[in-house]
Amino acid sequence: MEIIAQRPKSLTDLQFTYCPGCTHGISHRLIAEAMDELDMRNNMMGVAPVGCSVFAYKFFDCDMAEAAHGRAPALATGMKRSRPNMHVFTYQGDGDLAAIGTAEIIHAANRGEHITVFFVNNAIYGMTGGQMAPTTLPGMKTSTSPYGRDEKDIGYPIKVCELLSSLVAPYFIERVSLLSPQDIMKAKKVVKKALQFNKEERGFTFVEFVSTCPTNWGLAPIDAMKWAKENMLPFFPLGNYRDKSVEGGK
């Protein structure tokens, strides 16, 4: 019998701890599939963040480190510099990467560390119960912006791909979404491209996933995807922000 679909080898057998309808499971799977297809699992080291995906260190079946909140790119720097023949990725949420870890991500990108950063943007702090994130949309209600995010008081959401693409060193930066099967297929190609560049030691690679948080948004999973398409994508445009592999690339 021919196997045409199975659990990626780069995921352990553990059951995910994510809420029903959460997109973390999808992004985990895309990364693991790409690791399998590129035969990277046996020389890959990953860094898990603090947030809902804090247990990512249990889910990816390669050597993994669990970082302090926001510090994953610093750990990844130490790991990659220490064992340069190995590949390194981080997996981080929006609070982790774009608030408490802003310095670490900007400087890892600016040094052009040979790592891949996967950035999950769902505009909210999930694990702590739905507080405002640096990517929370203007007017969006969260448990710490109960009257809606007031941009006059707390500023606008941070657009991380745009911010990082102002730096010279990064090799590849792209924003994808996980909001429909079609989007997921496209995202897979981008994830694989980033890891391919990682394998080839091209430089710093970055993939942002526009994701959902049905639980803390208070929406059913399908409604959450619809909401994200209507509200997040206008603010966080999908597309490539840097690709040095293309001649005349951005």
Binding site: A68, L75, G78, S82
Partner: peptide, 11 residues
């Protein structure tokens, strides 16, 4: 935290 990461690789 770079020390943390590097130490985790055993050097």
């Amino acid at each position: 935290n770079m020390v943390y990461g590097a130490s985790g690789t055993g050097r």
